Computed example of a mutant assay.
Amino acid sequence: MKNIVLIGMPGVGKSTIGVILAKELGYQFVDADLLIQEQEKRLLKEIISEEGIEGFIAIENQVNASIEADRTVIATGGSVVYGKEAMEHLGEIATVIYLKLSYKALRKRLGNLKNRGVVLRDGQTLKDLYEERVVLYEKYADITIDEENKNLEETLQSIIDTL
Rank of each mutant, 00 (worst) to 15 (best):
K2V: 12
V5Y: 03
V5G: 04
P10E: 09
G11D: 09
V12T: 14
G13I: 09
K14H: 12
K14P: 06
K14A: 11
I17V: 15
G18F: 01
G18S: 12
V19Q: 14
I20W: 01
L21D: 05
A22N: 09
K23P: 00
L25N: 08
G26S: 11
F29S: 10
D31I: 08
A32G: 10
D33R: 08
L35D: 01
I36V: 15
Q37C: 12
Q39L: 14
E40Y: 07
R42I: 03
L43R: 15
K45A: 06
E46D: 15
E46S: 13
E46R: 04
I48V: 13
S49E: 15
E50L: 15
I53D: 07
F56Y: 15
F56V: 05
Q62C: 01
N64W: 00
A65T: 04
S66T: 13
S66R: 14
E68G: 01
A69S: 12
D70S: 14
T72R: 05
V73T: 00
G77N: 08
G78H: 07
G78D: 11
V80Q: 06
V81G: 05
V81N: 04
Y82D: 05
G83D: 05
K84F: 10
K84G: 00
A86Y: 07
E88L: 14
H89D: 10
I93G: 00
V96N: 01
V96P: 01
I97Y: 00
L99Y: 05
L99R: 08
L101Q: 03
K104R: 14
R107P: 00
L110S: 10
N112A: 09
R121W: 13
D122H: 05
D122R: 08
K127S: 09
K127E: 15
Y130G: 07
E131R: 10
E132T: 11
V135K: 15
L136I: 08
L136S: 09
A141W: 07
T144L: 08
I145A: 08
N149G: 08
N151R: 02
N151Q: 07
E154F: 03
T155V: 15
T155R: 03
S158C: 09
D161Y: 04
T162F: 10
L163V: 02
